[in-house]
Design a protein around this nucleic acid. Structure first.
Length: 565
DNA sequence: CTGGGGACGGGGCCC
DNA sequence: TGGGCCCCGTCCCCA
């Protein structure tokens, strides 16, 4: 594969969207550049029209109509939304500016209603899922209980006020795409407001006269085959159809100019995309870094190949780093290492983790639990492996020996650090230690094997930091396939080549998630830039092991030269 | 530079 | 098959 077809190289700034949103939120909090004030029962919320238009179908349609009317959409305006509870409106605004929805379970219904009214579908979906609403069942019930010509508005009220049958103490919270606005399905919606009838139409009446409901809104409630009763299609319920029609946002999805490539996954996600939630008191939804479901989506995509069949059996291959992930259900976990998602938050200190089990261990810090006591002293530890390390102090065992200077260490990582630090100046001046009993333990055999073969040891140490397989990084055609690219640094080389490698995944799979692609790269390059040693890029252990031999073989001469220094 | 604690990601086992 | 739990290897940070 050649470099970028026209020589262009995309430089990712994955944090840009986060920072942008953060700055907008700061502006909102300080009232800076706010050109729209939302009010609800006396509470005032300064905000930005552009942000609201980006996140809300209602506002998009509203402001879009203004644009169409030549109003320019400029100027300062006030929008009264008494139909949305102040707390719910606050939560929705918080979501709009932080991509995270934080709401108490008790307020879920209000938020759901507000999201429905404002056309923030992902939030509505999430709330609905948390509330355990079953649209189909609801529809049946509604149809059974209500005459056909029932007022849709009152029907909506009934739906929203009716307690959910599956109550809210559900621990599992479905994660939805609440990430970047840029990643929201809303982003793909047609720009024309005509197709956006808003369920918030009733709130139009409370809008200031400077923002009359656009004619489009009336049109929105009309269907060519309808009798003109605008209420007929106002049912906001998900998947609910009235007279054969579906709510507008459900209709829009199939009409996307660039539909998400993972369409079958939508079903998948709606069925079983569930994550650990956070207690019954509050629910945290979303991610500050990515569309939270992307990891799961891509994870599923990597194995479904776009089909409808379920996820395949393990092992599964990561579509980003090509790494083979062993173990059932481990791929979504792995994908979070690329997306940066940390869905598990400590309720005590707010620290977030990518995995629930890590959070669980972390919680021991707050509970004071140290379940691993040393039998030889009073020390107690959070982790079993900490105890194991500690026990080596008592035993005096130092099974990890530098093959060059023969200095011994109690921990393997300390040996590695020692060698990477070029601190073993006494190479070959010390006599090798006797092989300790720990050699029986397979865990140390790597280090001791290195001792037996210093060349291989160096090869192992200086293996490639490549994120992708060597063949991919060097063009996918093997050593003789073409001229190798020149890079100023390993990081640059990796970044550029990884971009090419990602492109190999094809637009079908990744085009809709540019942030995802770029983040996967940034995760690697960024780590290096954050202060790690130059050229040292974290690579999954398995990957390191996998490439060690390749490097040893391909760079054998080079490594030998380095050894001779 | 080294020792030690903590964090993170992957794999295995089990339900 | 997915997910919880545990262990391991590795890395980062601090003293």
């Amino acid at each position: 594969m050649s470099p970028g077809e026209d020589g262009l190289i995309g430089i990712p700034f994955p944090e840009h969207s986060n920072e942008l949103l953060s700055h907008l939120n700061d502006q909102r909090r300080t009232g800076l550049l706010c050109d729209l004030t939302l009010t609800s029962r006396g509470a005032r919320y300064p905000t930005h029209r552009s942000v609201m238009a980006a996140v809300s179908l209602y506002f998009r349609g509203l402001f879009g109509a203004e644009e169409g009317d030549g109003g320019g959409g400029g100027g300062f305006s006030v929008c009264q939304l008494d139909c949305v509870e102040p707390d719910a409106l606050d939560a929705l605004l918080e979501f709009a500016y932080t991509a995270t929805l934080t709401i108490p379970s008790s307020g879920m219904k209000d938020v759901l209603r507000g999201a429905q009214l404002l056309g923030i579908q992902c939030v509505a979906d999430a709330c609905r899922d948390i509330l355990g609403e079953n649209a189909e069942t609801e529809k049946e019930m509604v149809e059974e209980q209500r005459p056909q010509q029932v007022d849709a508005e009152s029907m909506m009220e009934t739906r929203l006020e009716k307690p959910s049958r599956r109550k809210t103490d559900r621990k599992k919270v479905r994660k939805v795409g609440l990430g970047h606005i840029s990643s929201s399905p809303l982003n793909h919606l047609p720009t024309s407001p005509v197709s956006h009838h808003s369920p918030a139409s009733d709130s139009f009446r409370s809008l200031p006269s400077t923002q009359p409901p656009s004619p489009e809104h009336d049109e929105l409630f009309l269907s060519p085959r309808q009798n003109g009763d605008p209420r007929e299609i106002r049912e906001p319920g998900r998947g609910v159809t009235l007279n054969g029609r579906v709510p507008h946002w459900l209709q829009e999805r199939p009409h996307l100019a660039h539909p998400p490539p993972l369409a079958p996954l939508n079903d998948k996600l709606s069925e079983d995309e569930e994550m650990e939630g956070f207690g019954a008191e509050g629910v945290l939804i979303g991610s500050t870094s990515m569309p939270t479901s992307v990891a799961e989506q891509v994870a599923a995509a990597s194995v479904t190949g776009g089909g409808r069949k379920r996820k395949s059996q393990t092992p599964q291959q990561c579509p980003v780093c090509q790494k083979i992930i062993h173990g059932a259900g481990k791929l979504p976990r792995h994908m979070r290492t690329h997306t940066g998602e940390k869905p598990f938050q400590c309720t005590a200190c707010g620290v977030r983790f990518t995995r629930n089990d890590k959070l669980k261990i972390h919680m021991r810090k707050h509970t004071g639990e140290r379940p691993y006591p040393c039998p030889h002293c009073s020390a107690r530890f959070l982790h079993s492996y900490d105890l194991k390390n500690h026990l080596s102090l008592h035993s005096g065992a130092r099974p990890f020996e530098c093959p060059l200077c023969h200095k011994a260490f109690a921990r393997e990582d300390h040996l590695q650090r020692h060698r990477k630090g070029h601190s073993c100046l006494e190479q070959r001046t010390r006599r090798p230690r006797r092989v300790p009993e720990q050699m029986e333990d397979g865990r140390v055999d790597g280090g001791m094997r290195e001792q037996s073969n210093p060349l291989e040891a160096l090869a192992l140490q200086a293996h490639s930091s490549a994120f992708f397989t060597r063949s991919m990084l060097e063009g996918g055609g093997g050593p003789g396939a073409g001229p190798q690219l020149m890079f100023d640094s390993d990081a640059e080389r990796e970044r550029v080549l990884a971009l090419q490698a990602l492109a190999q995944l094809g637009p079908h799979r990744l085009a809709a998630y540019p942030e995802f692609i770029l983040r996967g790269l940034e995760m690697r390059v960024g780590r290096e830039a954050e202060g790690e040693h130059p050229g040292r890029i974290r690579t999954p252990p398995a990957q390191r092991n996998q490439t060690a031999h390749e490097v040893g073989e391909e760079n054998g001469e080079k490594e030998a030269e380095e050894e001779e220094w």
